[in-house]
Computed example of a mutant assay.
Amino acid sequence: MSATTARRVLISAGEASGENYGAMLIPELRKLLGTETQFFGVGGEKMRAAGCETIIDSGKVAAVGITEVMKHVATIYREFFRMVSVARSRKPDVAVLIDFPDFNLRLAEKLHTMGVPVVYFVSPQLWAWKQRRIWRVKKFVDRMLVIFPFEESYYRERRVDAEYVGHPLADLPLPQIAREEFARRFGIEGGKKWIALLPGSRKKEILLNLPVMLQAAGELGPEYEYLVPVASTLSRDWMAQQTGGARVHLVDDPCAALLHSRAAVVASGTATVEAALIGTPFIVVYRVSGLSYAIGRRLVKVKNFGMVNLIAGREIVPELIQSNFRPENVVRQIRRLLVEGDPRAEMVRNLEGVRKELRNAADARGKTAIVRAAEAIGRTLLNSQPVKQKAT
Protein backbone atom coordinates (compact mmCIF):
# COMPACT_ATOMS: atom_id res chain seq x y z
CA MET A 1 0.00 0.00 0.00
CA SER A 2 1.42 3.37 -0.93
CA ALA A 3 0.33 6.97 -0.80
CA THR A 4 1.31 10.09 -2.73
CA THR A 5 1.00 12.19 0.41
CA ALA A 6 1.92 11.34 3.96
CA ARG A 7 -0.87 9.68 5.86
CA ARG A 8 -1.82 10.92 9.32
CA VAL A 9 -2.80 8.33 11.92
CA LEU A 10 -4.19 9.20 15.33
CA ILE A 11 -3.47 6.54 17.96
CA SER A 12 -4.94 6.75 21.45
CA ALA A 13 -3.73 4.36 24.16
CA GLY A 14 -4.20 5.36 27.78
CA GLU A 15 -2.78 2.36 29.63
CA ALA A 16 0.49 0.44 29.65
CA SER A 17 -0.80 -2.62 27.77
CA GLY A 18 -2.51 -0.52 25.11
CA GLU A 19 0.55 1.67 24.75
CA ASN A 20 2.64 -1.44 24.18
CA TYR A 21 0.26 -2.56 21.41
CA GLY A 22 0.36 0.93 19.91
CA ALA A 23 4.15 0.83 19.80
CA MET A 24 3.97 -2.57 18.08
CA LEU A 25 1.41 -1.32 15.53
CA ILE A 26 3.34 1.74 14.37
CA PRO A 27 6.13 -0.04 12.44
CA GLU A 28 3.61 -2.41 10.80
CA LEU A 29 1.43 0.51 9.74
CA ARG A 30 4.50 2.26 8.32
CA LYS A 31 5.17 -0.79 6.14
CA LEU A 32 1.62 -0.60 4.78
CA LEU A 33 1.02 3.13 4.60
CA GLY A 34 4.51 4.40 3.81
CA THR A 35 7.55 5.46 5.76
CA GLU A 36 6.39 9.09 5.79
CA THR A 37 3.23 8.25 7.71
CA GLN A 38 2.74 10.59 10.68
CA PHE A 39 1.53 9.27 14.04
CA PHE A 40 0.18 11.38 16.87
CA GLY A 41 -2.16 10.97 19.79
CA VAL A 42 -2.24 9.63 23.37
CA GLY A 43 0.55 7.39 24.59
CA GLY A 44 3.72 7.01 26.59
CA GLU A 45 7.42 6.34 26.25
CA LYS A 46 7.15 3.21 24.09
CA MET A 47 4.95 4.92 21.51
CA ARG A 48 7.27 7.93 21.47
CA ALA A 49 10.22 5.61 20.86
CA ALA A 50 8.28 4.07 17.96
CA GLY A 51 7.85 7.48 16.37
CA CYS A 52 4.52 8.74 17.68
CA GLU A 53 4.09 12.36 18.70
CA THR A 54 2.25 12.09 22.00
CA ILE A 55 0.01 15.11 22.24
CA ILE A 56 -1.10 13.78 25.61
CA ASP A 57 1.02 11.62 27.88
CA SER A 58 -1.09 8.65 28.92
CA GLY A 59 -0.06 9.12 32.53
CA LYS A 60 -2.11 12.31 32.69
CA VAL A 61 -5.41 10.65 31.83
CA ALA A 62 -5.11 7.15 33.27
CA ALA A 63 -7.38 6.57 36.26
CA VAL A 64 -9.00 3.53 37.78
CA GLY A 65 -12.45 3.16 39.28
CA ILE A 66 -15.50 5.39 39.15
CA THR A 67 -14.65 7.64 42.08
CA GLU A 68 -11.00 7.84 41.01
CA VAL A 69 -12.06 9.17 37.61
CA MET A 70 -14.27 11.74 39.33
CA LYS A 71 -11.31 13.04 41.36
CA HIS A 72 -9.33 13.68 38.17
CA VAL A 73 -12.20 14.70 35.94
CA ALA A 74 -10.96 18.25 35.36
CA THR A 75 -7.54 17.09 34.15
CA ILE A 76 -9.00 14.29 32.05
CA TYR A 77 -11.51 16.58 30.35
CA ARG A 78 -8.92 19.28 29.72
CA GLU A 79 -6.61 16.78 28.05
CA PHE A 80 -9.50 15.15 26.20
CA PHE A 81 -10.59 18.39 24.56
CA ARG A 82 -6.99 19.26 23.76
CA MET A 83 -6.76 15.97 21.87
CA VAL A 84 -10.04 16.73 20.09
CA SER A 85 -8.77 20.18 19.09
CA VAL A 86 -5.53 18.77 17.68
CA ALA A 87 -7.44 16.08 15.78
CA ARG A 88 -9.73 18.69 14.28
CA SER A 89 -6.78 20.79 13.09
CA ARG A 90 -4.67 17.89 11.76
CA LYS A 91 -7.52 15.88 10.20
CA PRO A 92 -6.17 12.32 10.59
CA ASP A 93 -6.83 9.84 7.79
CA VAL A 94 -7.75 7.15 10.32
CA ALA A 95 -7.95 6.85 14.09
CA VAL A 96 -6.85 3.77 16.04
CA LEU A 97 -8.31 3.69 19.55
CA ILE A 98 -6.82 1.04 21.84
CA ASP A 99 -8.87 -0.16 24.83
CA PHE A 100 -9.25 2.67 27.46
CA PRO A 101 -13.02 2.93 26.82
CA ASP A 102 -14.04 5.76 29.16
CA PHE A 103 -11.79 8.08 27.18
CA ASN A 104 -11.72 6.44 23.76
CA LEU A 105 -15.44 5.84 23.23
CA ARG A 106 -16.04 9.55 23.74
CA LEU A 107 -13.13 10.36 21.47
CA ALA A 108 -14.71 8.09 18.84
CA GLU A 109 -17.84 10.23 18.93
CA LYS A 110 -15.87 13.43 18.35
CA LEU A 111 -13.88 11.86 15.53
CA HIS A 112 -17.11 10.62 13.98
CA THR A 113 -18.38 14.19 13.71
CA MET A 114 -15.16 15.05 11.83
CA GLY A 115 -15.66 12.19 9.37
CA VAL A 116 -12.56 10.33 10.57
CA PRO A 117 -12.70 6.53 10.12
CA VAL A 118 -12.42 4.91 13.57
CA VAL A 119 -10.88 1.51 14.23
CA TYR A 120 -11.12 0.21 17.79
CA PHE A 121 -8.38 -2.27 18.71
CA VAL A 122 -8.80 -4.30 21.92
CA SER A 123 -12.49 -4.26 22.70
CA PRO A 124 -14.03 -2.66 25.76
CA GLN A 125 -15.36 -5.53 27.85
CA LEU A 126 -18.98 -4.72 27.08
CA TRP A 127 -19.89 -8.39 27.43
CA ALA A 128 -18.85 -8.10 31.10
CA TRP A 129 -20.15 -4.75 32.22
CA LYS A 130 -21.69 -1.45 31.05
CA GLN A 131 -23.32 -3.25 28.14
CA ARG A 132 -25.40 -0.18 27.36
CA ARG A 133 -22.29 1.38 25.79
CA ILE A 134 -22.80 -0.83 22.74
CA TRP A 135 -24.76 1.98 21.10
CA ARG A 136 -21.61 4.11 21.05
CA VAL A 137 -19.69 1.35 19.30
CA LYS A 138 -22.45 0.80 16.73
CA LYS A 139 -22.75 4.49 15.95
CA PHE A 140 -19.19 5.77 16.11
CA VAL A 141 -16.82 2.85 15.37
CA ASP A 142 -16.17 1.69 11.80
CA ARG A 143 -14.43 -1.55 12.74
CA MET A 144 -13.87 -3.40 16.01
CA LEU A 145 -10.72 -5.54 16.17
CA VAL A 146 -11.01 -8.04 19.01
CA ILE A 147 -8.35 -10.17 20.68
CA PHE A 148 -10.45 -12.97 22.21
CA PRO A 149 -12.30 -15.50 20.03
CA PHE A 150 -15.70 -15.16 21.73
CA GLU A 151 -15.78 -11.38 21.24
CA GLU A 152 -16.22 -11.55 17.45
CA SER A 153 -19.60 -13.28 17.63
CA TYR A 154 -20.70 -11.02 20.49
CA TYR A 155 -20.26 -7.93 18.33
CA ARG A 156 -21.48 -9.42 15.08
CA GLU A 157 -24.71 -10.51 16.76
CA ARG A 158 -25.17 -6.84 17.60
CA ARG A 159 -24.41 -5.72 14.05
CA VAL A 160 -20.96 -4.34 14.71
CA ASP A 161 -18.29 -4.91 12.03
CA ALA A 162 -15.93 -7.00 14.17
CA GLU A 163 -12.86 -9.05 13.30
CA TYR A 164 -10.93 -11.39 15.54
CA VAL A 165 -7.23 -10.75 14.92
CA GLY A 166 -5.77 -12.78 17.78
CA HIS A 167 -4.08 -11.73 21.00
CA PRO A 168 -0.79 -9.83 20.52
CA LEU A 169 0.74 -11.41 23.61
CA ALA A 170 0.17 -14.91 22.22
CA ASP A 171 2.60 -14.16 19.38
CA LEU A 172 5.47 -13.03 21.55
CA PRO A 173 8.36 -15.41 22.32
CA LEU A 174 9.33 -16.08 25.90
CA PRO A 175 11.99 -13.71 27.27
CA GLN A 176 15.46 -14.87 26.31
CA ILE A 177 17.32 -13.50 29.31
CA ALA A 178 18.67 -16.27 31.55
CA ARG A 179 17.70 -16.31 35.21
CA GLU A 180 21.33 -15.85 36.25
CA GLU A 181 21.77 -12.76 34.07
CA PHE A 182 18.45 -11.32 35.27
CA ALA A 183 19.57 -11.87 38.86
CA ARG A 184 22.89 -10.09 38.25
CA ARG A 185 21.23 -7.17 36.51
CA PHE A 186 18.90 -6.41 39.39
CA GLY A 187 20.86 -7.68 42.35
CA ILE A 188 18.54 -10.60 43.06
CA GLU A 189 19.73 -13.61 45.05
CA GLY A 190 19.53 -16.50 42.62
CA GLY A 191 19.56 -19.24 45.23
CA LYS A 192 16.15 -18.25 46.62
CA LYS A 193 12.71 -18.75 45.12
CA TRP A 194 11.32 -15.59 43.54
CA ILE A 195 7.81 -14.17 43.84
CA ALA A 196 6.67 -11.57 41.29
CA LEU A 197 4.38 -8.80 42.53
CA LEU A 198 2.51 -7.01 39.71
CA PRO A 199 0.34 -4.24 41.23
CA GLY A 200 -0.79 -2.61 37.98
CA SER A 201 0.24 0.09 35.54
CA ARG A 202 -1.56 3.16 36.89
CA LYS A 203 -0.64 5.20 39.96
CA LYS A 204 -4.00 4.70 41.64
CA GLU A 205 -3.74 0.94 41.10
CA ILE A 206 -0.30 0.95 42.70
CA LEU A 207 -1.52 2.93 45.70
CA LEU A 208 -4.41 0.53 46.25
CA ASN A 209 -2.71 -2.79 45.45
CA LEU A 210 0.98 -2.53 46.29
CA PRO A 211 0.71 -1.95 50.08
CA VAL A 212 -1.18 -5.22 50.60
CA MET A 213 1.31 -7.07 48.39
CA LEU A 214 4.20 -5.67 50.43
CA GLN A 215 2.52 -6.64 53.70
CA ALA A 216 2.07 -10.17 52.37
CA ALA A 217 5.73 -10.27 51.35
CA GLY A 218 6.67 -9.20 54.86
CA GLU A 219 4.64 -12.07 56.30
CA LEU A 220 6.16 -14.58 53.89
CA GLY A 221 9.58 -13.48 55.06
CA PRO A 222 13.15 -13.18 53.73
CA GLU A 223 13.43 -16.74 52.43
CA TYR A 224 12.02 -15.44 49.11
CA GLU A 225 13.05 -12.66 46.72
CA TYR A 226 10.30 -10.26 45.64
CA LEU A 227 10.27 -8.73 42.15
CA VAL A 228 8.15 -5.66 41.32
CA PRO A 229 8.09 -4.76 37.60
CA VAL A 230 7.78 -1.05 36.82
CA ALA A 231 5.23 -0.32 34.08
CA SER A 232 6.33 1.84 31.15
CA THR A 233 3.73 4.44 32.16
CA LEU A 234 5.29 4.95 35.61
CA SER A 235 8.44 6.56 36.95
CA ARG A 236 10.96 4.23 38.56
CA ASP A 237 11.71 6.86 41.21
CA TRP A 238 8.00 7.18 42.04
CA MET A 239 7.69 3.39 42.32
CA ALA A 240 10.73 3.29 44.61
CA GLN A 241 8.99 5.78 46.88
CA GLN A 242 5.89 3.58 47.05
CA THR A 243 7.86 0.56 48.25
CA GLY A 244 8.77 2.48 51.41
CA GLY A 245 12.07 0.72 51.87
CA ALA A 246 10.56 -2.76 51.63
CA ARG A 247 12.96 -5.52 50.63
CA VAL A 248 11.88 -5.79 46.99
CA HIS A 249 13.62 -5.49 43.62
CA LEU A 250 12.26 -3.09 41.01
CA VAL A 251 12.71 -4.62 37.56
CA ASP A 252 11.93 -3.45 34.04
CA ASP A 253 10.67 -6.62 32.36
CA PRO A 254 7.42 -8.07 33.72
CA CYS A 255 7.51 -11.08 31.41
CA ALA A 256 11.02 -12.05 32.48
CA ALA A 257 10.05 -11.52 36.11
CA LEU A 258 7.08 -13.84 35.66
CA LEU A 259 9.09 -16.43 33.73
CA HIS A 260 11.76 -16.76 36.40
CA SER A 261 9.48 -16.53 39.44
CA ARG A 262 8.11 -19.51 41.31
CA ALA A 263 4.71 -17.82 41.69
CA ALA A 264 3.15 -14.38 41.31
CA VAL A 265 0.56 -12.01 42.73
CA VAL A 266 -0.99 -10.18 39.78
CA ALA A 267 -3.44 -7.28 39.66
CA SER A 268 -6.42 -8.03 37.44
CA GLY A 269 -5.78 -6.89 33.88
CA THR A 270 -3.57 -7.70 30.91
CA ALA A 271 -0.80 -8.97 33.17
CA THR A 272 -2.97 -11.97 34.06
CA VAL A 273 -2.93 -13.00 30.39
CA GLU A 274 0.86 -12.57 30.33
CA ALA A 275 1.20 -14.79 33.39
CA ALA A 276 -1.06 -17.43 31.84
CA LEU A 277 0.87 -17.46 28.57
CA ILE A 278 4.17 -17.77 30.43
CA GLY A 279 2.70 -20.49 32.65
CA THR A 280 3.69 -19.14 36.06
CA PRO A 281 1.17 -20.07 38.79
CA PHE A 282 -0.41 -16.94 40.22
CA ILE A 283 -3.32 -15.39 42.06
CA VAL A 284 -5.44 -12.48 40.85
CA VAL A 285 -5.95 -9.52 43.16
CA TYR A 286 -7.59 -6.13 42.83
CA ARG A 287 -8.93 -3.24 44.84
CA VAL A 288 -10.67 0.03 44.00
CA SER A 289 -12.37 2.53 46.29
CA GLY A 290 -15.34 1.20 48.24
CA LEU A 291 -17.81 3.39 46.35
CA SER A 292 -16.37 2.41 42.96
CA TYR A 293 -16.69 -1.25 43.87
CA ALA A 294 -20.24 -0.90 45.18
CA ILE A 295 -21.36 0.84 42.01
CA GLY A 296 -19.31 -1.27 39.61
CA ARG A 297 -20.23 -4.65 41.08
CA ARG A 298 -23.89 -3.99 40.37
CA LEU A 299 -23.03 -3.38 36.72
CA VAL A 300 -20.78 -6.41 36.19
CA LYS A 301 -22.51 -9.26 34.37
CA VAL A 302 -19.86 -11.98 34.84
CA LYS A 303 -18.91 -14.05 37.87
CA ASN A 304 -15.13 -13.73 37.63
CA PHE A 305 -12.88 -10.69 37.30
CA GLY A 306 -9.65 -12.27 36.04
CA MET A 307 -9.39 -12.49 32.27
CA VAL A 308 -7.71 -15.89 32.48
CA ASN A 309 -10.77 -17.24 34.33
CA LEU A 310 -13.11 -15.66 31.78
CA ILE A 311 -11.19 -17.35 28.96
CA ALA A 312 -11.25 -20.69 30.78
CA GLY A 313 -14.96 -20.35 31.56
CA ARG A 314 -14.34 -21.19 35.22
CA GLU A 315 -12.12 -20.18 38.09
CA ILE A 316 -8.74 -21.79 37.53
CA VAL A 317 -6.84 -19.02 39.34
CA PRO A 318 -7.87 -17.76 42.81
CA GLU A 319 -9.29 -14.24 42.89
CA LEU A 320 -8.89 -11.97 45.90
CA ILE A 321 -11.00 -8.91 45.16
CA GLN A 322 -11.70 -5.87 47.31
CA SER A 323 -12.32 -6.89 50.96
CA ASN A 324 -10.92 -10.39 50.30
CA PHE A 325 -7.64 -8.87 49.18
CA ARG A 326 -5.89 -9.00 52.54
CA PRO A 327 -2.28 -9.95 53.37
CA GLU A 328 -3.23 -13.13 55.20
CA ASN A 329 -5.32 -14.33 52.25
CA VAL A 330 -2.50 -13.60 49.80
CA VAL A 331 -0.06 -15.52 52.00
CA ARG A 332 -2.39 -18.51 52.31
CA GLN A 333 -3.04 -18.73 48.58
CA ILE A 334 0.50 -18.11 47.40
CA ARG A 335 2.00 -20.68 49.77
CA ARG A 336 -0.08 -23.39 48.07
CA LEU A 337 1.63 -22.52 44.79
CA LEU A 338 5.20 -22.28 46.05
CA VAL A 339 5.54 -25.96 46.89
CA GLU A 340 5.15 -29.02 44.71
CA GLY A 341 1.71 -30.54 45.16
CA ASP A 342 -1.75 -30.89 43.68
CA PRO A 343 -2.75 -27.16 43.79
CA ARG A 344 0.34 -26.09 41.87
CA ALA A 345 0.20 -29.00 39.41
CA GLU A 346 -3.48 -28.44 38.68
CA MET A 347 -2.98 -24.75 38.02
CA VAL A 348 -0.04 -25.44 35.70
CA ARG A 349 -2.24 -27.84 33.69
CA ASN A 350 -5.12 -25.37 33.53
CA LEU A 351 -2.87 -22.49 32.45
CA GLU A 352 -1.48 -24.70 29.70
CA GLY A 353 -5.04 -25.15 28.43
CA VAL A 354 -5.58 -21.38 28.26
CA ARG A 355 -2.20 -20.92 26.60
CA LYS A 356 -3.00 -23.52 23.95
CA GLU A 357 -6.37 -21.92 23.22
CA LEU A 358 -4.86 -18.49 22.64
CA ARG A 359 -1.81 -19.70 20.71
CA ASN A 360 -3.70 -22.18 18.55
CA ALA A 361 -6.08 -19.41 17.54
CA ALA A 362 -3.09 -17.24 16.63
CA ASP A 363 -1.32 -20.02 14.69
CA ALA A 364 -4.47 -20.78 12.67
CA ARG A 365 -4.34 -17.29 11.19
CA GLY A 366 -0.78 -17.55 9.93
CA LYS A 367 0.06 -13.93 10.78
CA THR A 368 0.63 -12.18 14.06
CA ALA A 369 -2.23 -10.31 15.69
CA ILE A 370 -0.43 -7.01 15.17
CA VAL A 371 0.06 -7.64 11.44
CA ARG A 372 -3.60 -8.62 11.04
CA ALA A 373 -4.67 -5.54 12.97
CA ALA A 374 -2.48 -3.28 10.82
CA GLU A 375 -3.93 -4.79 7.64
CA ALA A 376 -7.47 -4.27 8.91
CA ILE A 377 -6.66 -0.66 9.74
CA GLY A 378 -5.23 -0.16 6.25
CA ARG A 379 -8.34 -1.63 4.63
CA THR A 380 -10.55 0.61 6.75
CA LEU A 381 -8.58 3.68 5.69
CA LEU A 382 -8.89 2.84 1.99
CA ASN A 383 -12.46 1.55 1.98
CA SER A 384 -14.15 3.51 4.73
CA GLN A 385 -17.55 5.04 4.26
CA PRO A 386 -18.87 7.75 6.55
CA VAL A 387 -19.99 6.17 9.80
CA LYS A 388 -23.38 7.81 9.52
CA GLN A 389 -24.13 5.65 6.46
CA LYS A 390 -23.76 2.41 8.41
CA ALA A 391 -26.79 0.47 9.57
CA THR A 392 -27.80 1.16 13.15
Rank of each mutant, 00 (worst) to 15 (best):
R262Y: 01
H72F: 00
H72T: 00
S123K: 13
G200E: 09
D57T: 01
R133W: 05
R349G: 12
V300M: 04
I134P: 01
K110G: 00
G378D: 10
V228P: 10
R332K: 08
A361R: 01
I134Q: 00
P199V: 02
E352A: 15
K303G: 08
N304L: 11
R185A: 14
V308A: 13
D171F: 00
L33T: 03
I98F: 05
L220S: 13
M347W: 13
E152M: 07
A294V: 01
Y224M: 12
L172K: 15
D93L: 00
F121S: 07
A256L: 02
D252I: 06
V331E: 06
S261R: 13
I370H: 03
L358I: 11
R335A: 12
A23I: 03
D102G: 06
V42T: 08
I55T: 14
V42P: 02
V212K: 05
V64E: 13
A13L: 11
F40E: 03
G296N: 07
D93N: 04
D252Q: 14
K388R: 15
V84M: 03
V330M: 00
V42M: 07
E45Y: 12
R8H: 11
M213I: 02
L172I: 14
V9W: 09
P327G: 05
L10E: 14
V308S: 15
P92N: 13
V228N: 11
L25G: 11
V212Q: 03
A183Y: 08
N104A: 02
L337Q: 06
D57R: 03
N383A: 03
E36A: 15
V371E: 14
L227H: 08
F81A: 02
V354S: 01
A275T: 15
E151F: 02
R298Q: 09
T272F: 13
A128R: 07
G306A: 15
W129A: 07
G378N: 09
